[in-house]
Amino acid sequence: MTVVLGISNSDLAAATGSDAALRRFLFGLPGVDQVGAEARAAALATRSIKAATKRDLIDLAIRMIDLTTLEGADTPGKVSALCAKAQHPDPTDHTAPHTAAVCVYGDMVPHAVRALGPDSPISIAAVATAFPSGRASLDVKLLDVHDAVVNGAHEIDMVIDRGAFLSGRYLQVLEEVRAVKEACGTAHLKVILETGELQTYDNVRRASWLAMLGGADFIKTSTGKVQPAATAPVVLVMLEAVRDWFDVTGHHIGMKPAGGLRTAKDAMRMLVLVAETVGEDWLTPDLFRIGASSLLNDLLLQRQRMRDGAYSGPNYVTLD
């Protein structure tokens, strides 16, 4: 489809020309019916996956994880433990794949660089832009990004200014994303919408487009600090935006649910949502990430169960 939702690729530049144009564009997007979207997400949650496929998908899910620690109490020791876990998630089974990335605060990036060593296949993602609230001046946010990138972050997880979004200053949100994208240089940009604060699916859809218009490489649901976070219908609505963006522009945007995903079953449901909404092309760590911490252990427990044919227990995975 070259024209999707009445939008063609050439309309996009004009859409961001002014606050008024941007507002018109975002409000021209089709609405989302809450009940219908939730029903669709719930229906997809009943899919039953073949055992062999499930084994593959568990490994894929592990490879998609941005293993995360974002606490005020984070220390260099905590971060190096996290990095060790990301590299070798299951000490009893070295066939367990490594995660896609570790995700830490900006000041922890040097510790992650040290812990992972040179040429690690694991990316370092840093949250930035006054995470999680985003309440700081643009200069401070850009410095935050700059700092992380200079220290070696490969990926920046920024938050949008929800205050600006909810008060209708869409151009400000957009320009902030653009500025951060520029500050990222070669680092990949994930734009966190904090959907729990946006409240409505209409807002989630508009914010998704806003982030993509601003140059996001990934759009991400949540900081993990606000509930609800990566619910299935929110992920569905964001994936629909990713799909429509691809139809308009031909560009693949990545998607990252984060927050509230704890079980292997949650992860499987996410992968089903991806396959049935945007297609299996997106079933790769390049285009789909899962922001999580405790999820990894549950995936490992399931992996052990499928390997050993017996239910595993919490003492058979590491608490880091």
Partner: peptide, 10 residues
């Protein structure tokens, strides 16, 4: 590239 195959879950 993974392909999701649903189990025949009769």
């Amino acid at each position: 590239m993974a392909r999701i195959e649903y189990a025949p879950a009769p």
